[in-house]
Design a protein around this nucleic acid. Structure first.
Lengths: 358, 358
DNA sequence: TTGTACGCGTTATCAA
DNA sequence: TTGATAACGCGTACAA
C-alpha cells in the first residue's frame, strides 16, 4: 500500500468496488490469498481446518471469484461466441439451444449476438468476440459480401465452425443440413405423384441454403426427364407475407401449378395461407384439385394444415450440438502438431409424407 | 523488463501466447503502450502522425484489444447475463432477441444460459454470471423452491430484472404480461357469448403465470355470476401432448364443456388438436356444436386453425426490450444516492377475436 | 502444507 | 502531448 489509501470523495470499501476479493476472504479467514485460491480450485493439500475457515468466509462475504481476472491469468476465457442471423426464428432458437447444451457440458458459456443477416453487424460481433478472447466461434453466416472477417488471420487463430450455411473462400469446419438431398426427395415425391408443373418458392438466391435446395429440386426434374417450368420459380421471399403474395400470383396464372415445393418454413407458411384462402373463395365450386404442397423445414401445428402437406424434416438442436462438438474437438486437438483439414458434415433429413406422423 | 525474457522451453512469440498485445503494437509503432491505448479509445490529444503509426501497426498485427483485461482495469465488463427457462420456446426466443437488441444499442453483449426450468441450474448460471462480473442480469425465473440466489446479497449488488414471471420474496424490477386482465377478458368474451361450462387448461399450479391467468379466469366468472366448474379445470399440462390428452378427456365427459380457455400456447395447441380429431371422428354427424377456444399467447399459423379461435396476444420482443431498458435505467442511476424502489411493469395484452386479423 | 513474488494485458494517475 | 508507474484480481512457480 503506497498511495491512494482513501479516495477524497469518501467512497471506499462501502459500495466502492462492490465485490469482495481473495484478499478479503483471506483476511476474514486468517490465511493467505493463496490458500483461498487453493480451496476454491478444490485443491487437495489444505488442512481441513483452514479449508473450513475459508469456506465459511466465502459464504459470509458472498464471495464470487472473478472469472474475468481468473481467465486473464489462466489464458482461457471459458467463453464461446455465437452469432446467429435471427434468434427469433424458432429454427435458430433450437440451434442455439443445441450449442448451449454442449457448451454447458464442457463448462463453457455462450456469448450470443444477432447479426440480422447483416454482414457488417456480423463483422462487428465476431471482432468483439475475438477481443473478448472467446475460445471458439460458431457462426451462422449471413453470407453476403466478402468474408474477410472469417479468415483465420482476422480471427487471431480462434477456431471457427460454420453452422447451417457454408461460405465461399472460408476453409472452416462446417455443419450443414443435407439440403440437396432433401429438396431432391421432395421434388421426386411430387414427380412420382405425376405432377409436371411444380412451383418453387424459395429464399433470395444469395442465401446458401436456397441455392442448394434449388439444385436438388432441379436435379430431381432432370432425372425424371421433366423440365423445370421457369415461370413457376419464385426466389426472393424472405418472409411469410411475400411468400403468400408469390403463391397467390402463381395460383392466378392461366395454367397454375398443380403442386409446389417450398424451400423453407417461411415460404411453406405463405403458400399454405394463399392456397387456403383461394380454396375458401372457390368454395369447392370450381372442382379444380387442391394444390399439393411439399415443404422444407418443419413447424408447429403442421399436422393441422388445411392443405395436403408433406415435409422435409430436420433437427435444429442436433445441428447445434454437432457444430459445438466439432468446435470442442478442435479445441482439444489444439495442442497437437498436425492440424486436421477442415471437415464438412451434412446432417440427414427425413421426408415425412404424412404430416400427422411428425 | 526485469526477468523472464525467454522461457526455457523455447516457446515465445511464435505461437506461444497467440494474440498480440499493446506492448507489441507500441513497439511496432515506436511509441509507449499508453499512446496505443489512447488511440484505441479514440482519444483527442494524440499527434496525428503518431496516431497513424499506431493504426498502421494495429492493422499490420491484426491486433484485437483484450476486452477481458480491459474490463478488469475499467471495472465494467460490458456483459449482461440472461437466463431463460427454455430458449427453444419461440416465445422466449423473441424475448431474448428483444434483450439483445437493447443491449447491443448500449454496446453490451449478452451471456445466455438455459435453465431448463431447473432452479439448481439457474442458481449455477446466476452464480457464474456474477463471477464473470456481468453488469446486470435478466432472469426468467424457473420459480420453484427458495430463491436465495436471486437475493441482493447473493448477487453481490448486481442489478436484476425479472422477466415474464415474478418471484415471491424477491424485490427486484419486474416486467410481466398483464396475465390477469388477459385471462379476464378471454373468459368474459366466452361468458358474453353465453357459455356457462367453460373448461380451463393451464400450466402447473406452481408456475407464476398459470396462477395469474387462473385468477383472471375466476374473476370473470365471479363478476358474471357464473360458477367455475371444478371438473373442467385442468392444471399441470406443460406440453402439447398432455394438453391434448386433457382436452380429449374433457370432451368425453357426459356433459362436456361448450368452450375452453387455454392459458398458454402449449395448451392451446393441444386443445385444438383434440377438438380437431374429435370433430373429424364425429364427421359432422352428431350435430353437437364445435367447442369454442380462446387461448393465451399467439402462435404461427393461428389464422389457419381448423377450430373457431380467439387469442390473447402479446409481444415477447417488447417484453425483452422493456426488461433490458429497465436494467439500463438502473445502471445509469447506480451512482445516485437515493435508490429507487423496485418497479413492476405490466405490459398490455390484446384480445384478438378474429384470428385472421392477427 | 503454506506463503511470497511476480506476471497476465490493460488503463488511471500523475509527472514531464 | 507523451510516458512511467502502479494497480485491477487472480494463479503459477518456487521458497519456506
Amino acid at each position: 500500500m503506497t498511495a491512494g489509501a482513501d479516495a477524497p470523495d469518501g467512497r471506499r470499501r462501502t459500495r466502492g468496488s462492490g465485490a469482495s476479493t481473495v484478499q478479503d476472504v483471506a483476511a476474514e479467514a486468517g490465511v493467505s490469498p493463496m490458500t483461498v485460491s487453493r480451496v476454491l480450485s478444490g485443491a487437495q493439500h489444505v488442512r481441513p481446518e483452514l479449508r473450513e475457515r475459508v469456506e465459511a468466509a466465502v459464504l459470509h462475504l458472498g464471495y464470487h471469484r472473478d472469472e474475468n481476472a481468473r481467465s486473464l491469468r489462466r489464458r482461457r476465457s471459458g467463453l464461446i461466441g455465437v452469432t446467429i442471423t435471427n434468434i427469433a426464428n424458432p429454427y435458430y432458437a433450437g440451434l442455439q439451444r443445441g450449442i448451449e447444451e454442449v457448451a454447458a457440458r464442457h463448462e463453457r458459456r455462450i456469448l450470443v449476438g444477432n447479426s440480422n443477416e447483416d454482414p457488417v453487424r456480423e463483422r462487428q460481433l465476431v471482432g468483439d468476440f475475438v477481443g473478448r478472447r472467446v475460445e471458439g466461434l460458431v457462426v451462422v453466416p449471413s453470407g453476403q459480401g466478402p468474408a474477410t472477417h472469417l479468415q483465420p488471420k482476422a480471427l487471431g487463430g480462434v477456431p471457427l465452425v460454420l453452422a447451417s450455411r457454408a461460405v465461399e473462400g472460408v476453409d472452416a469446419d462446417t455443419v450443414l443440413i443435407d439440403d440437396v438431398r432433401g429438396a431432391y426427395e421432395a421434388a421426386t415425391l411430387l414427380l412420382r405423384e405425376g405432377h409436371t408443373r411444380i412451383a418453387f418458392l424459395g429464399n433470395r438466391v444469395s442465401v446458401f441454403t436456397g441455392q442448394r435446395r434449388f439444385a436438388g429440386f432441379r436435379q430431381a426434374h432432370e432425372e425424371a426427364g421433366v423440365p423445370v417450368v421457369g415461370e413457376l420459380v419464385r426466389q426472393g421471399q424472405q418472409d411469410v407475407d411475400s411468400a403468400r403474395e408469390a403463391m397467390t400470383e402463381l395460383l392466378a396464372l392461366d395454367d397454375p401449378p398443380t403442386a409446389v415445393f417450398t424451400a423453407n418454413n417461411r415460404n411453406t407458411l405463405g403458400a399454405i395461407r394463399a392456397i387456403a384462402v383461394a380454396e375458401r373463395d372457390r368454395s369447392g365450386a370450381g372442382g379444380r384439385r387442391q394444390t399439393r404442397v411439399v415443404g422444407f423445414d418443419s413447424f408447429e401445428l403442421a399436422d393441422l394444415s388445411p392443405v395436403a402437406l408433406s415435409l422435409v424434416d430436420h433437427d435444429a438442436e442436433e445441428l447445434g450440438r454437432q457444430a459445438a462438438e466439432m468446435l470442442f474437438e478442435r479445441l482439444e486437438a489444439a495442442g497437437e502438431d498436425e492440424q486436421q483439414a477442415p471437415r464438412l458434415v451434412e446432417l440427414p433429413v427425413r421426408l415425412v409424407e404424412d404430416v400427422a406422423r411428425l
